[in-house]
Structure formats: C-alpha cells, structure tokens
C-alpha cells in the first residue's frame, strides 16, 4: 500500500531533504513500521497524525493514508 507522508520541519532529512514522501508498505502495516521504513528513531519525533488524527504507533495504516510526522521541539 502507498502512504503519503509529510516530514515536518527538520524531519525532512529522513526524506533526503524532501518534506513529502510516498512510502510503500505491506498491507495492514502499523504506524511503527512506517517509522522503521523511514529510519526515524523513536526519540526523534514528537507525534504523528494519521488523516488528521494524532495516533499511537500501533495504529494500522491503510492504502492512501496521509501521515504527518512532527519533530521534537523544546521551549515555548
């Protein structure tokens, strides 16, 4: 299945500098496998949003899902 990924801010480095990526995964993969496929370590992102909803890494993805991944931010 194809997942439309947005790598926000400095996370574009996991997409070779591109904010938008299309990632191909096996059907019914969980969100955590998307992170593995992009080689984003667990402690390098703050949260991910699947089709507009903040989601845990166990969430099962479907073909055509839009996933946005956000960096760690400090301060206020």
């Amino acid at each position: 299945m194809k997942i439309n990924v947005v790598l926000a801010g400095p996370l574009s480095k996991y997409g070779n500098g591109s904010r938008h990526q299309i990632v191909v995964l096996e059907d019914a993969c969980q969100l955590k496998e998307l992170f593995s496929a992009l080689e984003i370590p667990e402690n390098k992102y703050s949260f991910a949003v699947v089709n507009g909803i903040k989601s845990l890494e166990e969430v099962v993805l479907q073909n055509g899902d839009e996933v946005k991944i956000y960096p760690i931010v400090s301060g206020g």
């Binding site: 801010g9 760690i72 931010v73 301060g75």
Partner: peptide, 10 residues
C-alpha cells in the same frame, strides 16, 4: 542536536 535544530530550520 536533532531535538533543538527545529529552531534553526523552522
């Protein structure tokens, strides 16, 4: 480090 570089990039 990656944790702080958001401030520089964005």
């Amino acid at each position: 480090t990656d944790d702080n570089l958001w401030a520089y990039t964005d």
